[in-house]
């Protein structure tokens, strides 16, 4: 679509949307947010870009193809599922690691890896659909 307003707005909005998607993603688990909704926002940002500049340009910009993204999402899901089995707990049981940095506590966990997988799958799936519809 050739529109000066859309082009300019997209450049500004895309960065904002991507940051917001990351914010939503990390906010997850204890508060509303998480991989799915974060992924929707991330996909929304790229879709906006694809609308403004065309699917081909969008594909070049994100470099990685949507299906590869889904595949890496699967990898993350499998890792988060297998991790607990090493310590003899059922598939997908949450494993937590609490790290103390001065006065902030950083929580690392296998649900986080799972959420990364969900994020990648959601973005990949939506982009795959959008790109395949945009092609013609």
């Amino acid at each position: 679509m050739k529109s000066l307003i859309l082009h300019t707005a997209t450049r500004l909005l895309m960065a904002l949307l991507l940051i917001f998607s990351l914010f939503l993603f990390f906010r997850g688990h204890d508060e509303p947010g998480g991989g799915f909704i974060g992924g929707l926002f991330g996909a929304g940002a790229i879709t906006l870009y694809a609308l403004a500049f065309g699917a081909e340009k969008a594909q070049q910009t994100i470099r990685i193809s949507p299906l590869t993204m889904i595949a890496w999402g699967f990898v993350a899901l499998i890792i988060s599922g297998i991790l607990p089995m090493i310590v003899n707990e059922p598939f997908l049981t949450g494993q937590w690691l609490f790290l103390d940095f001065a006065d902030t506590e950083v929580k690392l966990s296998s649900p986080l890896i799972f959420d990364i997988g969900v994020y990648l799958c959601v973005v990949g799936f939506i982009l795959a659909v959008i790109f395949s519809l945009e092609e013609e």
Binding site: L67, T68, I70, W72, F74
Partner: peptide, 11 residues
């Protein structure tokens, strides 16, 4: 799931 992932990664 693992087999599908490997297949997707090495398209």
């Amino acid at each position: 799931l693992t087999a599908a992932t490997i297949g997707l990664l090495f398209r």
